[in-house]
Nucleic acid binder design. Structure first.
Lengths: 146, 146
DNA sequence: TTGAAATAGTTGCATAACTAACTATATGTC
DNA sequence: GACATATAGTTAGTTATGCAACTATTTCAA
């Protein structure tokens, strides 16, 4: 596979999300190989719910950096697969609290294990200091743009 | 906007493509503000054609890190907008050569200028050494996964 | 307290992504 | 030369993304 674009100075690869795509695609493949039928997008939503169950959809937008329609549809699909349930909030009737089902809770350990393995595989030959710099740069990019 | 996920050690933000998404979205917005109606995905295809016109679709797959159906449809849409044209190859009748139209050539300077501005904006406070490390890490991630 | 503005969520439309299955052409081996 | 295999491209089906426009509820201010 050619990596012409990647060698350029402009870092347009960031714009095209290519490194991210490669890692995400590999994780998706690893999910499939393990017989798990969730997408990485769905996983990224579940990931935040495992940390804190019962978030509002808006809160999920903030955490996953997606817009509201994207979250609406991701939750639609997660509901179809019976992995989450929308519960109306008692304090504010505009809000849906998104709650994990038991089957979603069962997915947590397995998928995070796979995600960690995938990241390890992706980051072979990259040292901790470099990872730290990448994280800092990504953080600055956010702060600059959002 | 929350950046919880981003502060974590696991670098899952790479999987979710969040830094890339932010930059790409901003460039898309800058295209729109400038009255340009192309998507960043289309732009990334044009970008390679500006460097070398008349590539095959397969070659575009390699350069843009997309699969064949994705390129097929991107070219479909670019053809609708009269920015490229498929030309049958004389040497190999399986191959389509993707050729720029005059209006596509006119887009080059303007859009690359906007892309450079967007990258500059995204990378405020990031020094050259850090950029170099990010590029190296991305390259290693590719080599590890592809 | 009433009416404007803000916030939470949904829906419609267009574009784009991946997989799997397909057609057509080219290559390489017996 | 013929048949298996590889390569280039397309199509179908599902999921996801962005924007704009919409409803419902809450908040805030005159």
């Amino acid at each position: 596979m050619s990596n012409n674009q990647f060698k350029r100075g402009e870092l347009y690869s960031v714009i095209n999300g290519m490194a991210s795509t490669a890692v995400a695609r590999r994780l998706q493949k690893n999910f499939r190989l393990a017989g798990l039928e969730i997408t990485i997008e769905q996983w990224s939503v579940l990931y935040h719910l495992w940390k804190q169950d019962g978030m509002s959809q808006q809160e999920l937008c903030n955490r996953t950096f997606r817009d509201k329609p994207s979250i609406t549809r991701l939750i639609d699909n997660l509901e179809k697969q019976k992995l989450v349930k929308r519960m109306p909030s008692k304090e504010d009737r505009r809000i849906n609290l998104v709650c994990l089902t038991e089957s979603a809770k069962l997915l947590q350990d397995k998928t995070i294990e796979l995600a960690n393995q995938t990241m390890d595989e992706a980051l072979i030959g990259v040292n901790k200091n470099e990872i730290e710099i990448v994280k800092q740069v990504f953080q600055k990019v956010y702060d600059n743009l959002l």
